[in-house]
Design a protein around this nucleic acid. Structure first.
Lengths: 192, 192
DNA sequence: GTCTATAAGCCGATAGAC
DNA sequence: GTCTATCGGCTTATAGAC
């Protein structure tokens, strides 16, 4: 479905994704998306019946790549679990150091749609974060942590806290702060 | 109209504050604010030269009450520091249980203004979070923690992570998750 | 309360593929 | 011939600002 079979549709999602992440949801117009995608608004509304649907499609497309990046950041790390977790947060910090970085798209979209709890994009965002949590739980259990679920939840809270703090203060150092906390929590769990 | 004890400017800020928090920044119009405040748009633009200025004023007004609430949540707690910190997060959870709760206004405003790093409201938001961090540091040091600064930073990341996670999943339980993590971190620091 | 700009969404028509 | 994907222009509502 999302293969190269539909150039225009793909270009629209790509354009929307870029603009939504860079500018925010509500400040981006459908006209701007159409222009950037190189299609007319008629084509845009042929593929997406509303802006809300396009917002959801944009987040849906970011789901897997995001999970893959997270997975890689942990997989590439060497050493024992505490060091590997800390490396993960170090990678968050370096990602946030890029000048175009503007926080977590899922979190920002959720914040901007706080008045629309049933919005399709909200569901996709929540599902994405749950997947992160589940992935963490599997990794922790695989590394020998017995009570993996609560620790995975705690680390996922630290991840989102790092995203939020780095954006507020424009300081990647907060990911390292979160990493130290996560390391302490993992070490404590390993001792139990 | 009904001025006197309730000056127009105050009513405008109060109306804006309510609408911005409930609906988000960009989805609230100046007309809606004027209507809710019971003033004409002429009066509104007499007190605030732009919407951006009003956004900043709204956050500035929330700064002190927010800090006061945080302070109370910790002050009212009994027991030792780890229990008191956990109580703080429990109070976050109960605040988030109210049906009208929609996350942290500072965090959501920052997210919505992610494309405007120099926006006055961004500076006020960042300053507010720094004050929270500083207040935590003072409290921790007062409770006998030597290296209070890094721990305060870690707990502030947990606070923002709790705000973000509770909003995404619409589940106050994430504040308790953050509370357990914070408790572990405090206990570890106390042992050092 | 008026102005100007711009937002989201809609419509009839059409060229090429099957 | 029908179907699919595309195009340009238009309507109505509402935005911020004075």
């Amino acid at each position: 479905m999302a293969s190269g079979k539909n150039p225009a549709r793909e270009r629209v999602i790509k354009a929307a994704s870029h603009l939504f992440y860079m500018e925010g949801i509500r400040s981006v117009s459908m006209d701007a998306i159409a222009e950037r995608a190189g299609v007319t608004k008629k084509t845009l509304y042929y593929h997406f019946t509303s802006k809300d649907e396009l917002i959801a499609a944009h987040l849906a497309q970011r789901d897997q790549p995001n999970l893959a990046a997270f997975s890689m950041w942990l997989a590439e790390a060497e050493g024992l679990l505490p060091e590997r977790i800390e490396h993960f947060f170090e990678r968050m910090a370096s990602a946030a150091s890029h000048p175009k970085w503007k926080g977590c798209g899922f979190q920002r979209t959720t914040a901007e749609l706080a008045n629309a709890p049933g919005h399709p994009a909200r569901r996709i965002g929540a599902a994405h974060k749950k997947k992160v949590e589940q992935w963490l739980e599997d990794e922790l259990r695989g590394a020998g942590i017995a009570e993996a679920a609560p620790l995975a939840r705690q680390i996922s809270v630290l991840i989102d806290g790092a995203f939020a703090s780095m954006l507020v203060h424009r300081d990647p150092g907060y990911a390292r702060t979160a990493g130290m906390a996560a390391r302490t929590l993992v070490e404590t769990a390993l001792r139990a």
